[in-house]
Amino acid sequence: MHISEGVLSAPVLLTGAALTLAGLAAGLKAVKDEDTPKAAVLSAVFFTASLIHVNIGPSSAHLILSGLIGLMMGRAAFPVIFFGLLLQGILFGFGGLTTLGVNTFTMAGPAALFGTLLRPGVNGRNPAAASVSGFMCGALPVLLSGLLAGAALYFSGEQGQYVALAWAVVAGNLPVAVIEGIVCMFCVSFFRKVRPDLLKSAAFAPGAAGPSPAFSPAD
């Protein structure tokens, strides 16, 4: 998911940077003062989660936990993930500075989208529905992130048909998506019991959520 430097073309890099800029502007506005420590902790979680590797075929996937971040932070997933990626790029050499924009949008966009959409389900009364929502909230962002990364590679001239490439990415990320879904599901059921406020008090100001204009204002 961390696209390395020297792979993408300039238009793709600029597009990713522009989208991330918009996401950051929206996300930073959404972080309230009292949410700052939570954002920092989630940034730290994101930063370290990438070290948990899962061996899949020729590639090597790792946990992202973007869905959980999206669920807890909404749009503010952008600054959280941006900062985590920045540190990963500098300290670990994951991704890189030129691809920071693309990588941030690839991971934070789906996280914010699904976190926003599935939030009501996670906070609903029905525990089973909440678990299902939690699972989806963990799994779906990974798949969509994979598709976005595949698109970025495709528009940069990676060989092959987009459909085939996309399928390869989805298939490659499926095991990670399932693992992420399970992790997110357990987190949701844990938070519902122990700290339900963590799933509710996040930065969800009314208005269009970053990349998901479909999100309608609540009040």
Binding site: A17, L24, T98
Partner: peptide, 16 residues
């Protein structure tokens, strides 16, 4: 050697 100057990703921040 990379195609873009490395200050590209810093662009988001001023807007933020």
């Amino acid at each position: 050697a990379t195609g873009l100057p490395s200050n590209a990703p810093t662009a988001p921040t001023p807007g933020a």
